[in-house]
Design a binder for these strands. Structure first.
Lengths: 345, 345
DNA sequence: CCTCCTCGTGGAATCGATTACACACCCGCT
DNA sequence: AGCGGGTGTGTAATCGATTCCACGAGGAGG
C-alpha cells in the first residue's frame, strides 16, 4: 500500500508538504497542492490511520460497551450511537458484555489498549476496578442507561418512575390487585430502580409487594421463564407479571403459553422497554417505552463534549407508558400500529 | 499513560528486553523477566496497540459490514462473528450499511484506513469499485450471506432452495394456489435467489408466478407494508404472501392488520429468516430458518484462515422450513416454543 | 590456552504519519 | 542598499512499539 513517502516522491515534494496538503494547512502553493493531489489520486493513496493515531494521540474512535446486543433495546441504542458518532466524525467499536462482568472487563481493557478517545458504558455490575481506575485516570467516559453510583462520570438515561406509576395506576384501574415483578440484577441501577419504583407505586394504592411476588431475573429470556413458572406454582399466583426488561417478558410469555394459559385472561403481562415486536405478539404487550434513539445521541454528544474539552452534561429523559392488550381490555378500539403511537402520559 | 520506556527505566533494562518479556521471547534471563514484570504491574503498564500495529502491520481486528443491524438476523450474525473472532484473538469493528451503498462504502473505506486485517461483507449491492479494488488488491475478504458473482472471494452462506421448495409444497398441501412474493433488491444475491427459488418451486406444481404477484421490496418493514397493500388492492389478491426477509414480513403483517383482515384466515404469510419473535406473533409465523450462528463462525474461520496464510474455503449450509400457524392449520397440536424445534425437512 | 558457540542484552533502525524549526526567497519600506 | 516580514518548503524529531545486529560474558571442546 502506498505511503506518504511514495506520494511525496511522485509529486516531487517532501512528505511535510504532502501532509500539509492532506490536512489543509494554508501555507502550500497552488502548484504543489495540485501536484500532490494528482499523485494521491494516481496512487490511490489513503492515509494510514494507525500511524496518524500514534502521532496525534487521537483515534477518533469511541468504545461502546453494552450488556447484550441481542436485546433490541441495546441494538437500537448501538445504532443511534453509531449514527451520531459518525455525524461528529467518530467511529464506534462495540463490545458485547453479555451481562458478564469478566467479558465487560475484557472489552474495556481491549478498548483502552486501542487508545479509543472515549468510552460509553452501560455497566453490567457495580463497577470493576478496571473501569473505576480508567475513570479516575481521566479516560473520557459516559454512562448510558445504567450507571454506577458514586463515580464521577456523566450519566445519560431515562427515568422510568413516572411511567411505572402510570403503569400501576393503569393496572389498578383494570381491577388487578396481585401484582408481581421479575426484577433485573440488583447490581445494576436499572435492575434495582425498577423494583423500587414498582414497590413505591404499589404503596400509593395501598398494595403490598410480597417477597413471593418479586422474582430475581438477569435480564435474559430464560430467567423470565423460570421466575414466571415459580409465580404460577404459588398457591395464589399473581394477576399481573411485570418484567423489568423485554427479554424476560418474552420468557414469561413462553412460560404462560407452556401451561396452556392465556394472556391477559389468565394472567396479565407488562414489560419495561418497548420494542417494535410487542405490537405483533399475541396479545400485543403493554410496555414502558424509553426514548432510546435520543439517549444514544445525547450520550455521544456528552462524550464528545468531554473529549473535546467542553463540559459534559448528565441527562435524564422521561419514559412513557404504552398500553396495549396484554393487561386486559384494549385501551382503544383501533389497533395499535406503532410502539410510539399511544401513551397514557 | 506509561510507555515501554517507563517500564524499561523502572526495571533497569532496555526497551528491547521489556518487549522481549512481553512477547515471550525465549532469550531473557529469569532475573530480568521478574524485574520487568514487577515494573509492569507496578506502573499498570499496558502496551499501546496503536504503536504495535504500526510496527507489525497487524491490527488483530476484523471489519464486518452488514446491511442492517436492526434486522435480528444480522444482529445474531454479528454476535456470532464477534464471539468466534474473540476466541481466535481478533476484535471486530461493525459497520452498519443500512442497505445504502454509499454508507457501505463509507464503512469499507474507514475500515481499510484503519488497516484491519480482514473484511467480512454482506454486500448491499452488486459491488462498488472500492470493494472490488480492495479485493483485487489482496485485502483478505470473505462474503457472508450475500455475495457478488464473479469476484474471487470465498462465500459463506445458506442455500434456501430446498427449504423454499419445502415451503411451497407445504403451502400447496394446505390448498393454496395463488402465491405471491415480496422480493428483496435484485442487486443482492439473496434478493434475486429467493424469487428464483420460489418461481422454480411453483413451477414444479404447475403454478405460475404472475408479475402482479411479485412485489419489489428493499428488505425493510415499510416496503413489506407497501407491497402487501398493493397485493390486497388487486381484483384477485393472493392467498399467500411470502416475504423474502423477516422485516418485510413484519410490514406485511401490519398491512393485513390495518385492513382488519386476519392471518391465516383471510391471507397466509410466510417469511425467509426465522427469528425468536416469530414464535410469539399473532399468529406464529412460518419461516425458513438459516443456521445463522454457524454461518458467522464459519465466515470468521474462513477469513482468519486467509489472513494467516491457510487456504480459505467457501461454505454453503442448508436452511430449513419451520412451519407454524400463519399459513393455515397448525402443523401439530403442541405449541411451538422455539424456532428450531420443528422442521419438515 | 585459544577458538567457537550460545546466551542475554542493548543500541538503533523502522513502521507512517505530524509538526517544530530553519531557511531561502521575494516584496516593500526606509 | 539594507532590513524586516511573510510565504513556501524541507529536514529531522517524535509518537511507542518490534526486531536486526553487534557485543560481551561464559562454557565447551580441541
Amino acid at each position: 500500500m502506498a505511503s506518504i513517502k511514495d506520494v511525496a516522491a511522485a509529486a516531487g515534494v517532501s512528505v511535510a508538504t504532502v501532509s500539509r496538503v492532506l490536512n489543509e494547512h494554508p501555507s502550500v502553493s497552488a502548484d504543489a497542492r495540485t501536484r500532490v493531489l494528482a499523485a494521491v489520486a494516481d496512487l490511490g493513496y489513503r492515509p494510514n490511520a494507525v500511524a496518524r493515531s500514534l502521532r496525534t494521540d487521537q483515534t477518533h474512535t469511541l468504545g461502546l460497551v453494552i450488556s447484550d446486543v441481542l436485546n433490541p433495546y441495546f441494538t437500537e441504542l448501538a445504532r443511534s450511537v453509531e449514527e451520531e458518532a459518525r455525524a461528529l466524525g467518530y467511529s464506534v467499536i462495540i463490545g458485547n458484555a453479555d451481562e458478564r462482568p469478566e467479558l465487560q472487563d475484557h472489552h474495556v481493557r481491549n478498548l483502552l489498549d486501542r487508545r479509543i478517545d472515549g468510552l460509553l458504558v452501560s455497566p453490567t455490575d457495580g463497577g470493576s476496578p478496571l473501569m473505576l481506575d480508567a475513570a479516575r485516570a481521566g479516560t473520557p467516559m459516559v454512562f448510558v442507561d445504567r450507571w454506577i453510583p458514586g463515580v464521577d462520570v456523566p450519566v445519560v438515561r431515562a427515568d422510568g418512575r413516572a411511567a411505572v406509576r402510570d403503569l400501576v395506576a393503569h393496572l389498578y384501574g383494570l381491577g388487578h390487585r396481585r401484582l408481581a415483578i421479575i426484577a433485573g440484577p440488583a447490581a445494576t441501577t436499572t435492575g434495582s430502580e425498577r423494583v423500587e419504583a414498582f414497590r413505591a407505586a404499589l404503596a400509593e394504592h395501598g398494595l403490598p409487594l410480597p417477597d413471593a411476588y418479586t422474582g430475581q431475573g438477569d435480564f435474559q429470556a430464560e430467567s423470565g421463564r423460570r421466575v414466571t413458572e415459580g409465580f404460577l406454582d404459588l398457591p395464589e399466583p399473581p394477576e399481573v407479571v411485570f418484567a423489568a426488561d423485554n427479554l424476560m417478558a418474552l420468557g414469561a410469555l413462553d412460560a404462560v403459553r407452556a401451561r396452556g394459559l392465556r394472556v391477559p385472561d389468565d394472567i396479565a403481562l407488562a414489560a419495561f422497554d418497548d420494542i417494535p415486536w410487542f405490537v405483533h405478539t399475541d396479545p400485543p404487550v403493554t410496555a414502558i417505552a424509553q426514548p432510546t434513539g435520543e439517549l444514544g445521541r445525547l450520550a455521544v454528544r456528552a462524550l464528545v463534549d468531554r473529549i473535546e474539552g467542553r463540559p459534559p452534561r448528565s441527562v435524564t429523559l422521561p419514559a412513557r407508558l404504552v398500553a396495549r392488550r396484554s393487561c386486559g381490555e384494549p385501551a382503544t378500539p383501533t389497533p395499535s400500529l406503532s410502539p410510539v403511537q399511544r401513551s397514557t402520559s
